[in-house]
């Protein structure tokens, strides 16, 4: 089985502060992985490196074992099949909910193609399906700015799915959601995994437990422990730096 994502010996520092320090991580195709760690552990920087937003100082980042991600930028990695959801929900506020989904739909990203693009019936159907999935059908014509915080989270997940990515990077999806919504999100992510690979960064331990997957603990920019939640919870190092305090 080939890996979806392969990080080896990756480092990145900002003005002397080592945000990522010799980080190695392998995600298999279709795997669901939770990444946890205290503030400043390097979770966001890790995602910035995977998506090409930040160039690492050293180390290797490979996609499907053949594409070097350190040479690409955000648009490249997105086209390659990396979808990212931010911690703070970012949707395009002035566009309607349906337009947000439409822009995310997998399609030609070229300038001229977009100038001349017409919405096909297949695309319209896909938009309807996704709106249904994230329960925003009734809000489809409203500007995204009018949505509640939780609805924006869902819209962003809908956009992520519309991109049809091979790998989803999901940053704290449960923030601002009710308990019921949190559980529904966990269900959704579990459903998605298998078909696609998913990396979830989360603080909420109930949520991580609900994901029921392999957990990676980051601390000071490198991997402290890896395994099931029960396994890492029992690790004395983890307890000391993260859970114990």
């Amino acid at each position: 089985m080939t890996s979806q994502l392969y990080l080896s010996g990756v480092s990145k520092s900002f003005d002397g502060f080592k945000a990522i320090n010799n980080l190695s991580l392998v995600i298999d195709k279709g795997e669901l992985r939770a990444v946890i760690g205290p503030n400043g552990a390097g979770k966001t920087t890790m995602m910035d490196i995977i998506t090409g937003k930040t160039k690492p100082d050293g180390g290797e980042v490979f996609w499907n074992e053949k594409v070097d991600l350190t040479r690409l930028d955000e648009a490249d990695t997105a086209r390659l099949g990396v979808g990212r959801k931010f911690q703070k929900p970012t949707v395009i506020e002035t566009l309607s909910v349906a337009d947000n989904i439409e822009l995310a739909l997998k399609a030609d990203r070229g300038v001229l193609a977009n100038l001349l693009a017409r919405k096909t019936p297949a695309q319209s159907a896909e938009i309807d399906r996704l709106l249904e999935l994230v329960r925003l059908t009734d809000e489809r014509a409203r500007p995204a700015a009018d949505l509640s915080h939780g609805q924006k989270q869902w819209l962003e997940i809908g956009m992520l799915l519309a991109q049809d990515p091979e790998l989803l990077l999901v940053d704290e999806p449960a923030a601002g959601m009710t308990d019921a919504e949190t559980m529904r999100t966990a269900d959704l992510l579990r459903d998605i995994a298998g078909e696609r690979s998913v990396i979830v960064v989360e603080h909420d331990m109930h949520f991580v437990q609900a994901l029921n997957c392999k957990v990676t603990v980051l601390h000071q920019g490198h991997v402290l422990a890896e395994g099931s939640l029960a396994h890492v919870s029992a690790d004395p190092q983890v307890v000391e730096v993260y859970l114990g305090r």
Binding site: T51, E74, L95, E102, L103
Partner: peptide
């Protein structure tokens, strides 16, 4: 056009638009 929507997306959330590809 759809390009017009992309322009608005760039205006309101440039970084997000990049991550959409």
């Amino acid at each position: 056009s759809k390009l017009g929507k992309v322009l608005v997306a760039v205006r309101d959330a440039e970084s997000r638009t990049r991550f959409l590809g």
